[in-house]
C-alpha cells in the first residue's frame, strides 16, 4: 500500500509538528462541543464541576511511578511477586493502587520470553496503574504493526531482541489489562527498593523497552 496519507495526517499524536497549542484558545468544533456538553451536564445536575475536577485530579495523580513501585517490590520480595502474578489487582492494592472495573494481569519477562502489550481494537491500557497511555500507544501504526512484526516495532524503540528470546504480544481485547514486569537489570544487587523503582520506565512496563545493564 503506497498510501501514506494516514501518517501525514495522524492527528492522534496531536500537533507534534507545530508548537504546543496554548490552553486559552479554542481550535476545533469538538473542543466547543466538549465545553457545551460539560455545561449542559452540569446545568442538568447530571455531574458537578467538582466531580469533573476530581476525576482530572485523580487522573493526574496516577503516573508510571505507581507501576514502577509494583515492579520493584516484585523484584525484591518473591512472595509479593507470586501474589502479583496470581492476582494483579490484589497485589497493586497492597501498595495502595486500587484498580477497579478491569482485571490486572502481570506478565513477567525472563531470559527466554519478552512480553509486549497492545490493544489492536482501541487503546486499552492499565490506566489505573500507569496513567494515560502515550500517544504512540494509541496510534494506528503501533496498534496495526506490533502484532504482525513485533521485532521490527521493538527495533524502532531501540530494543533489539536476540533471536532465541521468544516475543509474546498481548492484545488487550477484553476486560484484562496487562503489566509487563521487566527483568531486573544486572548490577543492581546493592540498590534498595526505591532506587530500583526509579530504574523502571513506562516503556519497559508496556514492553517496548528493556532495562539495560548499567542503565542510569
Amino acid at each position: 500500500m503506497s498510501d501514506h496519507h494516514h501518517h501525514d495526517h495522524d492527528h492522534d499524536h496531536g500537533h507534534h509538528h507545530a508548537p504546543p497549542q496554548p490552553d486559552d484558545k479554542v481550535h476545533s468544533y469538538h473542543q466547543i462541543l466538549s465545553i457545551a456538553l460539560k455545561e449542559l451536564l452540569i446545568e442538568k445536575g447530571v455531574v458537578t464541576a467538582a466531580e469533573v475536577r476530581h476525576f482530572i485530579e485523580k487522573r493526574d495523580s496516577i503516573t508510571p511511578a505507581n507501576g514502577a513501585k509494583v515492579v520493584a517490590r516484585a523484584w525484591v520480595d518473591s512472595a509479593f511477586r507470586e501474589r502479583l502474578l496470581a492476582d494483579g489487582n490484589a497485589a497493586a492494592a497492597e501498595l495502595g493502587f486500587p484498580i477497579t472495573g478491569t482485571k490486572l494481569v502481570a506478565v513477567e519477562n525472563t531470559q527466554d520470553t519478552h512480553n509486549v502489550v497492545v490493544c489492536t481494537l482501541c487503546s486499552c491500557y492499565p490506566r489505573d496503574l500507569l496513567g494515560l497511555p502515550p500517544a504512540w500507544y494509541k496510534s494506528r501504526a503501533y496498534r496495526a504493526r506490533v502484532v504482525r512484526e513485533p521485532r521490527a516495532v521493538l527495533r524502532e524503540f531501540g530494543t533489539e531482541l536476540p533471536g532465541d528470546v521468544a516475543v509474546r504480544v498481548h492484545d488487550s481485547t477484553a476486560d484484562i489489562r496487562f503489566l509487563v514486569v521487566p527483568q531486573r537489570p544486572q548490577g543492581t544487587q546493592n540498590l534498595d527498593e526505591d532506587a530500583l523503582a526509579a530504574l523502571v520506565t513506562r516503556d519497559s512496563m508496556i514492553g517496548v523497552a528493556r532495562l539495560e545493564e548499567g542503565a542510569h
Binding site: 500500500m1 501518517h7 482501541c122 500517544a135 501504526a141 504482525r148
Partner: peptide
C-alpha cells in the same frame, strides 16, 4: 477500529 495486522508506516514515538 479493528486494525491489527494492517500495513502501516513508522511509529512516531514523540509524546505530548
Amino acid at each position: 477500529q479493528d486494525i491489527g495486522g494492517l500495513p502501516e508506516g513508522p511509529i512516531d514515538a514523540a509524546d505530548h
